[in-house]
Design a protein around this nucleic acid. Structure first.
Length: 151
DNA sequence: GCCAACGTTGGC
DNA sequence: GCCAACGTTGGC
């Protein structure tokens, strides 16, 4: 079992939007970064995911989800109507992948990035050390620390 | 809205 | 394959 963090802009798709999906399951579409894609390909059914809200008044962890389908070609890459359309991708040799995630929990209070940054136990956390990566691993120590101290 | 960080593109 | 220019992310 591995742990992950995935970013989303809540104006576009929030953890509550995920909860309201049929069966609370959604395709995690639109990842267009190779490193993030490679992490998604490593995900297994049952892995747990922190849903992180970015580009919003209080960026931070907004809830939890579970991987419920492993990586498969992202159909939005082939859809000219989609904002995530990539004309250079080829359906015979897919470049972009997505997973399906199932909502688990929405936090009453977002755990702010500022709080993660100020916690020495989380100094090495990828989301703290690095920006500009939308899918990243979380260690089990980091996961346990956050879920036990911050809900 | 600014701008730093950093990924991607493309000329050479 | 280098690297400058450009585009995007995302916190503030």
């Amino acid at each position: 079992m591995q742990y992950w963090l995935m970013k989303t802009e809540p104006d576009t798709f929030s953890v509550e939007d995920l909860r309201r999906c049929p069966e609370s399951v959604s395709m995690w579409e639109g990842v267009r970064n190779y490193q993030a894609r490679n992490f998604m390909k490593d995900m297994k059914v049952g892995d747990l995911v922190m849903i992180y809200h970015s580009s919003c008044p209080v960026p931070g962890i907004a809830g939890y989800a579970e991987v419920c389908r492993e990586a498969y070609p992202d159909p939005t890459a082939f859809d000219p109507e989609s904002p995530y359309y990539d004309p250079k991708s080829d359906s015979d040799k897919p470049r972009w992948f997505c997973v399906d995630v199932k909502w688990q929990k929405s936090l009453d209070d977002v755990i702010p990035l500022s709080r993660l940054k100020s916690d020495p136990a989380l100094a090495e956390m990828v989301v703290v050390k690095r920006g500009r990566l939308s899918v990243m691993p979380v260690t089990s120590d980091e996961w346990d620390h956050i879920t036990s101290h911050f809900g």
